[in-house]
């Protein structure tokens, strides 16, 4: 099957600084893909390239085979919804108004949102669990609530591709589970989702496939149990970590044991590898 969205040979420079170099990524329909990696690895930049918000210095992004840079913004918006990390809003919109803005790419210029748009927005709010906030001002919400409102806005956009930059970073654990399972169910209905995530365990539980990044490049990719190895985590995050299978949630679990010194690789890896063997055999 052709990938719904694909990036080939993406490099991005901000001034003299190289943020991304030679990144390949592809996601098909029905896939929930997680982007992982330490701070500054280039995850958010990659997501913004995929959303067409910034042009890569090199490489191309294609959506359904079309070059993203050649598409009109409105056509991109009909297929791709993007939820940024920063959801701060300075103006006093109500939650309803914000979610309804997700309908923008589907409305003719002079149209106002009709009954159908309100229904779609209402359903999106219902699903994310922010329906009760509808009449509140966005400026009165907490960071976590705001994040969920913007996810509802993205769902109201009815995209084929959902791009989320740390969608659960401000949420409590209950809402983290809720939002990630919502995104997962969305992909199981045929959509494609790509999310920058920081929680390795939640990523393993909910994503079909992961990309592990470090210093602007992809260091490993594949299903969670293949990506999470002590070696890969040590290379990417510079931590000593234990990787186990957690039967309770039926997924791979990572426990960070400590930071690695710059030159301490051999010993650190040795011990964690052993613990890995142990947990796997039990």
């Amino acid at each position: 099957m052709e990938p719904r969205i694909a990036a080939r040979g993406i490099s991005y420079h901000a001034g003299d600084k190289r943020i991304l170099h030679g990144v390949d990524l592809a996601a098909r329909d029905g896939e929930f893909v997680g982007l992982l990696g330490p701070n500054g690895a280039g995850k958010s930049t990659l997501l913004r390239v995929l959303a067409g918000l910034i042009k890569p210095s090199m490489g191309t992004v294609t959506i359904d085979g079309d070059d993203l840079t050649a598409m009109r913004p409105i056509d991109v918006a009909r297929k791709v919804a993007y939820v940024p990390q920063d959801t701060h809003v300075a103006f006093d919109f109500s939650v309803w108004e914000i979610v309804l803005m997700g309908r923008h790419p589907h409305l003719p210029r002079f149209a106002v949102e009709g009954k159908r748009d309100h229904e779609i927005a209402a359903l999106a709010m219902e699903q994310v669990g922010v329906r009760h906030l509808g009449d509140r001002s966005i400026t009165s919400l907490s960071g976590g609530e705001r994040q969920m409102v913007f996810i509802a806005k993205a769902l109201a956009q009815q995209p084929q591709i959902l791009l989320l930059d740390e969608p659960v970073s401000a949420l409590d654990i209950r809402h983290q589970l809720h939002v990630l399972s919502l995104v997962r169910s969305y992909t199981e209905k045929g959509a494609t989702a790509i999310a920058v995530l920081h929680d390795l365990n939640l990523a393993a539980r909910f994503c079909h496939r992961l990309y592990l990044m470090a210093e602007g490049a992809v260091t490993a990719q594949g299903p969670p149990d293949a990506v999470y190895t002590e070696e890969a985590l040590a290379r990417s995050y510079r931590v000593r970590a234990a990787v186990r299978y957690d039967p309770l949630v039926q997924s791979t679990t990572v426990t960070a044991l400590g930071a690695l010194e710059e030159r301490a690789e051999p010993e650190g890896l040795q011990t964690t590898s052993e613990s890995h063997e142990n947990t796997r055999t039990t």
């Binding site: 009109r72 913004p73 009909r78 919804a81 790419p105």
Partner: peptide, 9 residues
Amino acid sequence: EHAKSAGVH
């Protein structure tokens, strides 16, 4: 970014 991703030029 919101505007751009909503299809605004």
